[in-house]
Design a protein around this nucleic acid. Structure first.
Lengths: 332, 332
DNA sequence: CTCGTGTTCGATCATTTGATCGATGAATGA
DNA sequence: TCATTCATCGATCAAATGATCGAACACGAG
């Protein structure tokens, strides 16, 4: 809307001159306002124009890029990236925590604290809340970073089966911890992430208990989940939720990441394959009208996070500088 | 209330840590506000604090110097110097025009335009105005830069005798031009700047005409005057208002400048000497409750302007970058 | 354990800022 | 020369900001 009037001026010598004079005034006004901290009324009387005139000069100065603001703090970079990602993928929020180049550990901790902060804002309210959680180290660390608070009216649902193929329980489920800390109700999916066969999956989905839990999850306002890589370091594989052959199949089909066990290609589309047909997690499309928040960091997770963003699955992202850097390098 | 989970980080130095966290938040708030252009309400909900909380964060960020503002324009330097001089000498205003290193001429022109702008602000108004003027190239150029405006109700008085020792009229008197341009009344001092003898001065001061003009000058709201150097290039000397011997006496007494013909030492004190006793101009003390404005530029005039400032004679100054530079280098 | 002290927080109000709209004045073309 | 159009300017109002004040909280001493 603004600014186009300026460029359309005929390029006579007189006009340029006049414009230059205006810029001079604008620079003076900007200096007095931003550096000198004067009020617009003072500037008006000092420059001999009306207050709205000063207003216009300041607007001009900003528009012409005369005013450069720099925040002298390490977090500046994080804010820049956070904002860029927010805008690029239309998120509701995006937190980027600093990545300490010295200690990779601390970055994970920052991530947990940032996640805990967001979670705390939800949980602290007293109206009953239904919240669903994925699994993973990040989610687990996040709920552990939360402090104890009495909220027995809340309900927490696990979105991912917490039984591995070999029968062991999921080490990284956050629902138990969260329910312990708040006194809220807990709902766990009594199933493996990936069923042994399509029939097994069908059987589980048919169970009344399973259905009941799905109903609770549909009620959830927000879902906090991790983002999984698909490679030999993938948690899904390392913790025996899928076999080596299944991993190879995913790699062959160019999966780069997974959300709740659903493999994504680099554009964030869920890959149809033998594994997909056996995943017991709730379908991603269920979250279209929920606040789905991903929590993951580290440059290695970059491709996976980027895929999740491209798919448009997420409403919120909590990540670190390394991953944010990867995302922006590869998407802009 | 907010962020209750975060402070629970156990660390050795609890206080420092807390402050660091606050600075982090402050940096985030500052970035969102100054760079992102977000409103404080948005920032408040984004950071999970109340709006007054954001207020405090922003105040902290500014106080800790996290926020650096730079105005990307040649005039920035002028504004910085203008402000410094204004504050140091308690002026009501101080305009510093840029000195083009290429063309020394243009600087003089800028000065005239800046002076004309100030003058125009006074003259524009319709209530009757009494204004007094000194002499000098700068003053003359300034009134010439003014545009024509019908103000017959105004009165303009010359503060300096406009007759040289040899009987010729002062070339640089602005009153005639100004009166012509506005149609206002004109009052000239029918006297040389420096009388031939004390007796001659006394005789002139006794004249009824002279007295009448002094009365008008006392009515003036503002006085615009030049600043004279005291050296072999001094206008006072070059235009034969004083003789070479008199110039030597002034130099010997360490005069560095003059206002209205009154010689000043480097601290701005009027020098008592044979010349002072014969100066017919109105005494400087008369301007204590008027707006005395000096108009002069060029590094060579620096010492003279600085003396005038140190003497506390001025309420306003219009100068250029070179002179302002000299002043600040030698006074701070 | 209780009181005093100092600090911090959020509700409220005054000031400042940004935006809209009608009026005024200058440039353009008939 | 006059009418038309466009840009610019300042009055007015809504929004945002900064500041003050009382209350709550934590901490330390008695």
């Amino acid at each position: 809307m603004e600014g186009f009037g300026l460029m359309s001026k005929r390029e006579g010598a007189g006009n340029v001159d006049k414009f230059e004079l205006k810029l001079d005034q604008a620079a003076r006004a900007a200096w007095l306002s931003y550096v000198g901290g004067r009020t617009q009324d003072e500037i008006a009387s000092q420059l001999g124009v009306s207050r709205p005139g000063v207003q216009r000069l300041l607007a001009l100065a900003r528009q012409e890029g005369l005013v450069k603001v720099h925040i002298d703090h390490p977090l500046t970079n994080c804010m820049v990236m956070s904002d860029a990602i927010l805008k690029r993928f239309g998120l509701e929020f995006c937190d980027v925590v600093p990545a300490d180049p010295e200690a990779a550990e601390s970055s994970a901790h920052y991530l947990a604290v940032a996640g805990a902060e967001r979670l705390a804002r939800l949980i602290e309210r007293s109206e009953p809340l239904t919240l669903s959680l994925g699994t993973g180290r990040s989610i687990r660390a996040t709920v552990e970073a939360l402090s104890r608070i009495e909220r027995p009216q809340h309900r927490f649902v696990s979105l991912v089966g917490n039984v591995a193929r070999d029968g062991s329980a999921n080490r990284y489920d956050g629902v138990m911890v969260l329910a312990d800390k708040t006194g809220g109700e807990r709902f766990l999916l009594p199933a493996p992430v990936v069923a042994g066969s399509v029939e097994e999956k069908e059987a589980m989905l048919g169970q009344r208990l399973f259905q009941a839990i799905v109903e609770v999850a549909k009620d959830a306002e927000a879902a906090y989940i991790g983002v999984g890589r698909i490679d030999r370091q993938a948690t899904l594989f390392q913790d025996h939720f899928i076999s080596e052959a299944e991993l190879d199949e995913l790699l062959w089909r160019q999966a780069v990441g997974e959300l709740l066990g659903w493999p994504l290609d680099r554009n964030g589309t869920v890959i149809e394959c033998s594994i997909t047909r056996r995943v017991t997690s709730l379908p991603l499309t269920m979250f279209r009208d929920q606040t789905l928040v991903a929590l993951a960091g580290g440059r290695d997770k970059g491709p996976a996070i980027l895929a999740a963003l491209r798919g448009g699955w997420l409403k919120g992202l909590i990540t670190d500088e390394s991953a944010a850097g990867y995302i922006l390098e590869n998407e802009i």
